[in-house]
């Protein structure tokens, strides 16, 4: 579904990603872990071209997203993204947050879009907040809405950029629960996270990034219980 070929990203003179290649298949839940500054977020943001790679290819459903002539907007509709800072639209109600893009881009009628939004909102337990504004919600609630906003576009893959890092500890669980539910339903997910418990429980594959390369990868068992490289061992010793 998503094929990353020798991905490179340089900011000025700094090499953030030094040739990353991996394949994400339908139904995969891939968690990306690694020390800060290892390029995890940059890697994720390159997948939907929010960050323009300086080298390599991103093949999504057969099309190379780094190709200049590709219709990036059409492809992004199929790649949902959830941000660390939620990035809900503060001037819109929750319902408007959820229906604007489907109405504009997928030509859904207002009624269709709202039905879908309310159904999904109900599933994350926030149906009664549809007419509130984002600022009236807690961080955890906002992030659940942000997940729903992405889901309303019916994406083929969901990208999560440290979705729980900006949350108060007591709200982390509610967001992770929604993500677990999503994984159980078979959604393809790429998750940059510091939540090792979540990664171990939900991921079918872990990528350990260090210094802009995949330093080690494997199943949660392999990565967490039998780490091969010294780099990963010392990282796990610090976070577990």
């Amino acid at each position: 579904m998503l094929n990353v070929v020798n991905l490179e990203k340089h900011f000025g003179g700094e090499n953030v990603l030094n040739g990353i290649s991996t394949e994400i298949n339908k139904g995969d839940v891939v968690c990306v872990i690694g020390p800060s500054g290892s390029g995890k977020s940059t890697f994720l943001r390159c997948l939907n071209m929010l960050e323009k790679p300086t080298g390599g290819k991103i093949i999504f459903e057969g099309d190379d997203l780094t190709d200049k002539h590709i219709d990036l907007n059409a492809h992004r509709q199929k790649m949902g993204m959830v941000f660390q800072q939620f990035n809900l639209f503060p001037h819109m109600t929750i319902l408007e947050n959820l229906t604007t893009a489907p109405m504009l881009l997928k030509k859904r009628s207002k009624q269709q879009a709202q039905e879908k939004a309310l159904e999904l909102l109900g599933r994350v337990g926030l149906a009664d907040r549809a007419n509130d504004y984002p600022a009236q919600l807690s961080g955890g609630q906002q992030q659940r809405v942000a997940i729903v906003r992405a889901l309303c576009m019916e994406p083929d893959v969901m990208l999560f950029d440290e979705p729980t890092s900006a949350l108060d500890p007591e709200m982390v669980g509610e967001v992770l629960d929604v993500m677990k539910e999503l994984a159980k339903e078979g959604m393809t997910m790429v998750v940059v996270t510091h939540e090792m418990g979540f990664a171990r429980e939900v991921a079918n594959r872990i990528l350990f990034l260090a210094d802009g390369v995949i330093a080690e990868e494997g199943t949660p068992d392999e990565v967490f219980d039998h780490p091969q490289s010294e780099r990963l061992q010392s990282f796990l010793a610090k976070v577990l």
Binding site: N73, R76, M79, G80, M81, F83, Q85, N87, F89
Partner: peptide
């Protein structure tokens, strides 16, 4: 207006101009 607003709009598949009109300018 926060930079993340443009990114959020673009990540949903909206064009720059659509995001500008619907998300950035109203704020």
């Amino acid at each position: 207006v926060d930079r993340g607003q443009m990114e959020a709009g673009r990540s949903l598949g909206m064009s720059k101009l659509q995001t500008m009109r619907k998300i950035i300018l109203p704020q």
